[in-house]
């Protein structure tokens, strides 16, 4: 922990700010995951942790290693690109699978396939207001 004392105070404050921002947003997202009522509400909550939660902690890590090694250390961008690209893909897959399962079980409150009002492929949207 000797390198920690050599940092200038403004860098330490900046790192602490981004760390606390990221961690608190992740905690908020996971509390939302805990407290929302239905799955379709819950699927939105953890994205708070994957956008600014991961972003804040990755920015803090970038600033810290750049200050300690006194050269730009930017390999955290790899993780951020990875997380930002894959999260929508996985959550879309999961939501479509859930919608398929709910339809197969005939649950109420799920939009059915034959709403047919717009007449194109996008009629099986996930918006509950489009129920017929």
């Amino acid at each position: 922990m000797t390198e920690l004392a050599e940092l200038p105070p403004w860098a330490a404050l900046l790192i602490a700010f981004f760390l606390l921002l990221g961690a608190s947003l992740t905690l908020l997202g996971c509390i939302g995951l805990l407290r929302f009522k239905t799955f379709y509400q819950r699927v939105h909550a953890p994205t708070l942790g994957t956008t600014w939660g991961a972003g804040g902690i990755l920015i803090a890590s970038m600033i810290f290693f750049s200050m300690v090694q006194s050269r730009p250390v930017l390999h955290e961008i790899l993780i951020s690109v990875m997380v930002f690209v894959t999260t929508p893909v996985t959550l879309m897959l999961l939501a479509r699978a859930t919608l398929y399962r709910d339809r197969a079980e005939g649950m109420s409150g799920v939009p059915s396939l034959d709403t047919g009002s717009t007449g194109d492929e996008a009629t099986d949207s996930t918006y509950p207001t489009q129920r017929s």
């Binding site: 922990m1 920690l4 200038p8 105070p9 860098a11 330490a12 404050l13 602490a16 760390l19 606390l20």
Partner: peptide
């Protein structure tokens, strides 16, 4: 000073 700030922030974040 900066070490105290960092250690505290790291503990709270963890």
């Amino acid at each position: 000073m900066s070490a105290i700030i960092l250690v505290l922030a790291l503990a709270v974040a963890q």
